[in-house]
Amino acid sequence: MGRTVSSMPSTAARVVLVTGVSRFLGARVANTLQADPRIERVIGVDTVPPTTSLGRTEFVRVDIRTPSIAKVISSAEVDTVVHLNLVTAPSGPRSRVKELNVIGTMQLLAACQRSPDMRKLVVRSSAAVYGSSPMDPAVFAERDEPVEPPTSGYAKDAVEVEGYVRGLQRRRSDLTVSVLRFVNFLGPGVDSPLTRYLRMPVVPTVLGFDPRLQFVHEDDGIEVLRRMTVEDHPGCFNVAGDGVLLLSQALRRAGRSFVPVPAPSFAALGDAGRRFAGMSGFSPELQRLLTYGRVVDTTALVNELAWRPKYGSEAAFADFVSARGLGRTVPMALLDRLTTVLGRE
């Protein structure tokens, strides 16, 4: 993971391709990039048409699992690819999600390797690559190996995606490659398994465990992706807001009522949720995160960008809470009344 000599836009992005543009993160990144006058063209690709207006971003409906993505890259002379296609929400059957994540990335990287115009690759990965186990060190830095590598779900996909990206780096050492390991996104616009979990009427937690969690605000995440795209920051970086929240603490701040259930029941609840239509349930990765938690070190990112996320984990969570209208519950009001009554006497 070499450090950049200068963060000046030496290989300035001219034509940027954004994958996964029809989803929340892709759409917002495309919107941010097209506001930059130095970028001539922003091309967004996805398998489904976008639901919101993309402005001057040119949308191409193409499945990145097929070789046709290579045609888009070569004909438009794409020099920068921002790969945001990692599907972290269990949308549809697992085999299809895995296809999208892994086979899609392989095709995209194959096309990147061929293209003589390619200069830069920015990949959205996940802090889930570190896994989550009781034997974990308290804080993961980028060079740390997972104690128990993830064995399922998008976390395993992310590990495989990073593996293929390293392969491309070996073969095309002229490329600037940035891999970003994001912790859970949170903010007014985010809809993820975690936000759905936090919004359950009564939130189940794992009895006897209180995981440490970190969040990154959507605005900060997009700013990091923008800077990685328009500036040169090769390497692998953890992205998270400063600070740590415990799950119990977060639920109390959000005024959610929660009920601790034994770990096996928690897993059964997740399975039941997945099986019934309309509910996403908890994936095994989410279950492990909500049992053992995970904290990553963001020193490398802060030093590289000379910038700190605007929102810490607590602020990102607070913004999510206020945007979703979650808040105080009855006992707090009672307690406040009791305090004022005592204060008056």
Partner: peptide, 26 residues
């Protein structure tokens, strides 16, 4: 005594509202 009761209530309130800090080790 009143101060202690008030302090106890304030503590309880902070705990119930989650208004405390933990470091990265928890």
């Amino acid at each position: 005594l009143e101060r202690r009761v008030a302090a106890g209530l304030a503590f309880l309130r902070r705990r119930l509202a989650g208004e405390y800090e933990v470091d990265e080790f928890g």
